[in-house]
Every structure is written in C-alpha cells, then in structure tokens.
Amino acid sequence: MDRYQAMTTFVRVVETGSFSAAARQLNVGQPAVSKTIAQLENRLQVSLLIRSTHGLSPTEAGQRFFERAKVAIQEADEAELAARGAGAGLSGCLRVSAATTFARLHIVPLLPRFLADNPELEIDVILDDRVIDLVAEGVDLSLRMGTLADSAAVARKLATGGRSVLATPGYLARAGEPRTPAELAGHDVVIYSQTANVWALSRDGTETSVTVHGRVRVSAAEGLREAVLADMGLTIASDWMFAREIESGAVRRVLTDWSLPPIDLWAVFPAGRMMSAKARQFAAFVEQALAGHSGAA
C-alpha cells in the first residue's frame, strides 16, 4: 500500500464527507477509495471512520490521524518542491474558482504564462458567480471580490480595485450626462441584482445616497456588461469589469469628482484543509500580475 496515497485518500474522504465525493476529486472509482481506506484501517489496526446514514465522520483515532496526515502531506509536497529546485515548477492539478467575468477578462489570459513556467501543472478553472463550497468542490483556491461573508475563511487580499459610475458614449449622447448624484434618479440604470439599487457616493467627506431605477435587471456580470455596451443605461461596476472599454473610450466614467467604496480581490483557501504550494504560488502570481493594473489601486 502506498502510504502517501492512502493518507491523501483518507484526508480527502474526511474533507468531503463521502467516498464518492473523494473519488470524484481524486479521479478514481469509489471502490478504489473504499479499498484504500479498508487497507489503511487494517494496517493501523484501528477504525478511522464512523459510517452512518448522514455520511462519514472520523473516529477519535481518525481525527488524530487526519490532523497529522494533513501536515505530513503538506510537508511532503514542500520537500518535493525543495528537492526539485525553484526552477523546476509545480505539478499535478490546481483547481481554481472565480467569478465568470473577472476570470474571463483577467485570470484566463494569465494562464499561458503560469503554465509555461510550470509545464507539469494542470489547471481546472471553475467559473461561477456564486460562492461555492470549496471543500465539497475540491477547490484549492477561490478568487472572490467584495466583503467576505465567512469570517472563518483563510484568505489573503490580493488587490483593491476602483468602482465607478459608467456608461457608453452612445447612451450619454441620447440621455445626457449626469452632473450630480441626484440626477442619477432620472436616468435609465442597468441594475445588478446582487447589489442594492441605492447608490452611495462621497466627495470631500460628504456622502450622498440616491435611489436609482432601471427597466433592466441582470443576475450575472456578463449580462451587465452586455446591457451597458448596448447603450441601455448607466451602471456602477468595478473598473476591472470594463478595463478595456474604459481604456479604449468605449465606456466612460461619469461623476468623476465623486467617489465610491473600492472593491477588494481576495484569495480564499479552504478552511480546515491543507493549503497547497500550488495554490499559494498561483495567488502570488495573480497578485503580482494585477499590481499596477488600471483597475487596481
């Protein structure tokens, strides 16, 4: 029995809570996972898992083994990287999740460079605007924007981006350009359903709020982009979302003497699970790539 593989399998079973979920993440059949755990328990002469109708959970001995195994696997990975040398690159599969539009515009274009530096690495990118369960989905690293709802999450801030009131020249030529926040109430607004329709802007330490209205409400950032680019109205968005269009002039910032709260980009790692060297290095790579970006502060 391969001890490293057995420990990895057991750790993944505990993290996911089932043989089937662990098998999917390990790209093996469920019988292979069950057999490995049985062999491990036989070798250790102790029961590691409690099986019930609600799933699997570690016994007291299993919990102790789980905690030590996580550390051992991480140290083994680090030892392998050290032996290979800094120039040898990473290997295996890295699973990354990120919001669809942000990833399409700013993460996917970076992948060729990262993969070229790590020729033995594969990257599985999960594009989803929802906050997903990282452990259940087997995700090594999630790139999330905004305020983190889970205070227990293991996270590191990678960048801060500006936010602006934006519109196309076509819409502004038709509807006029607002000169004050109060004038926003009379404009067509493309509303992102994940945000409120009360916008708060500040200038010189004074904050003002305005309730906006729009005939178009979208549930995904891709739809927001397309609606704005179709001259359907104003919106508030991160400068990351329209970075190319702002640079080319296809989209313009308005009310530029007023400011909006910035938005943070976070690297979020699965709580209670080992943080892989692959995930740490990719997070550092993204942080460096976004440094000095037009959308970052």
Rank of each mutant, 00 (worst) to 15 (best):
L234I: 10
N118Q: 12
T101P: 00
G89C: 05
Y4M: 13
E222S: 10
V71M: 10
R179W: 01
A69K: 09
G138H: 11
A152M: 10
V71A: 14
R51Q: 14
G92K: 06
T208Q: 14
S47Q: 15
A271N: 09
L81P: 02
L115A: 14
S193K: 10
S20A: 13
R24K: 11
A32C: 00
A200R: 14
K278H: 07
V13I: 00
D264A: 09
D77Y: 03
A153T: 03
G162E: 08
D257V: 00
E137K: 15
W199I: 15
T53A: 15
V135C: 10
E75F: 00
L166Q: 07
S202I: 00
G186Y: 02
L148D: 08
A69R: 09
T53Q: 15
E207T: 13
Y171W: 11
R12Q: 12
E15N: 11
S97M: 02
V216H: 14
F282C: 06
S151H: 13
S193T: 03
V216C: 09
L166G: 03
I50E: 15
A32M: 02
V286G: 05
Q25V: 02
H54L: 14
E226W: 09
A79S: 10
G186Q: 06
A103L: 04
D133Q: 12
M1T: 02
E226L: 08
S91C: 06
P178D: 09
D140Y: 07
P181M: 07
G176C: 06
S238C: 09
R68K: 14
L172G: 04
R64V: 03
V165M: 09
Q288M: 12
A173W: 04
R3M: 11
D188F: 01
V13S: 02
V135A: 15
N197I: 00
P169W: 05
L141A: 10
V198Q: 12
G62E: 01
L229M: 14
